[in-house]
Design a protein around this nucleic acid. Structure first.
Length: 391
DNA sequence: TCTGGGGTCCTAGGACCC
DNA sequence: TCTGGGGTCCTAGGACCC
């Protein structure tokens, strides 16, 4: 989806079209009060009534910026304070995940009704297998791609960009070629002219660290990466990563489009308004800790999951992250039990330093329906050995 | 005035088991 | 004088993605 969060906000506030708008930060009391006061008539709010980036004080990053805002050099993941210096007049809207999820469900529903083999890749992205979809092969996939775009626009008013290619790796890259509202079709013979000139960083899976290491060896483009001996890459990046880098540069990717998946973990975390100290801010921290545990417990219960690996995450004032976790025999989705075990994890971490972030995580998930009652799962009879040993 | 929140996957070492 | 060879589970950290 194109600038997804910002585009959803513009549906609510069409009066902001064409203006630099930035989405980021949590809703403030004023934000909520304004929404309540204007409920149903949001499009009538005067542009002057929206908060400006320049007025923002606090921690947070941009999740999405409209294209007019991007012209000022602001973009995703940038700190709001830094963005305010670049474009103080930009309007700032708080993130509203519930609303984005609603639109996410709607556009995915549209896709599945047209091409049923779809893989979720977060709230604003999917992979679609065109292989056996109706008209999936016509004009190299362009007919189906256009139909999906038009149907999503008709149902939601949102635009998206589509990349069609022989596999997920190349399709992902192709989807960036003609943003926004574009289609790009990449055939196997296009690898050399269209993919190899691109920076290695354009490969989904090569991040800042790997890119820096590649640059250290003088490798900047995917073509240069493809020219490396596989064994040379394996020697420097390890057997798995090195071989993957080589395959990726040559456009090789056999991963299927996965239509279903089970969550591995659920977590909640929060960055404090100011750094906190375990002793001096004990009460405040304790309240936040309890709330995080309750939120995770709630997420588990709503999804119908239980977990047995409970952990915490701390970010210190110097941005260093530590995690501690503990696996217990009993599966749980109980906030008090989660808090109890997470509390033990907390005691194993250095709490003398100032904290910026606290998180609570539950992993080793299982569906409640697959376990029966939690008590039964723990107390079930041990299985008898197939060939009991004789005395 | 730096730098969110919610995820997945991989690696590596140690405990423990047969 | 010699110290195997698997395998699984647990924990911690890190890279990366949306």
């Amino acid at each position: 989806m194109d600038a997804f969060y910002a585009s959803v906000e513009l549906l609510r506030y069409p009066q902001l079209k064409g203006l630099p708008v930035v989405i980021g930060g949590a809703p403030t009391e004023e934000d909520l009060a304004r929404s309540r006061a204007w409920a149903g008539r949001l499009h009538e709010i005067a542009v002057e009534a929206f908060p400006r980036l320049a007025d923002y004080v606090g921690r947070g990053v941009i999740t999405t910026a409209t294209y007019p805002a991007r012209a000022f050099g602001v973009g995703s993941a940038m700190g709001l304070m830094k963005a305010a210096r670049l474009c103080p007049q930009a309007l700032l809207l708080p993130v509203d995940f519930a609303e984005y999820r609603r639109y996410s469900r709607r556009f995915k529903q549209v896709i599945v009704s047209i091409a049923p083999v779809m893989e979720n890749r977060g709230v604003d992205e999917v992979y679609i297998d065109f292989t056996d979809a109706p008209d999936g092969q016509r004009e190299g996939g362009r007919v189906l791609a256009r139909r999906i775009q038009q149907s999503i626009f008709d149902a939601t008013g949102l635009t998206c960009s589509v990349g069609v290619a022989p596999n997920k790796l190349i399709a992902k890259m192709a989807s960036e070629f003609n943003k926004p509202n574009g289609i790009a079709i990449v055939l196997p013979e296009d690898l050399q002219p269209r993919i190899w000139p691109l920076a290695c960083r354009k490969i989904n899976g090569i991040g800042p660290k790997t890119d820096a290491k590649l640059q250290h060896y003088g490798i900047r483009t995917i073509g240069e990466l493809a020219a490396c001996e596989r064994a040379w890459l394996v020697a420097r990046f390890g057997p798995t990563h090195g071989a993957w880098l080589h395959d990726a540069a040559w456009g090789r990717d056999e991963r299927p489009v996965e239509t279903a998946s089970e969550p591995v973990s659920m977590s909640r975390e929060t960055t404090f308004e100011r750094d906190l100290h375990a002793v001096r801010d004990r009460a405040l921290l304790g309240g936040i800790f309890t709330e995080l545990c309750e939120q995770v417990a709630d997420d588990l219960a709503r999804g119908g999951y239980l977990g047995r690996t409970i952990g915490i995450k701390l970010r210190y004032d110097d941005f260093k992250i530590v995690t501690r976790d503990q696996t217990v025999p009993d599966y749980t989705d109980d906030a008090r039990r989660i808090r109890q075990v997470a509390g033990l994890c907390l005691k194993r971490a250095d709490l003398s330093r100032r904290l910026r972030l606290l998180g609570v995580r539950v992993g080793s998930l299982a569906r409640r329906a697959d376990l029966g009652s939690p008590a039964a799962a723990v107390q079930s009879e041990p299985e008898l050995p197939l060939f009991p040993s004789t005395p």
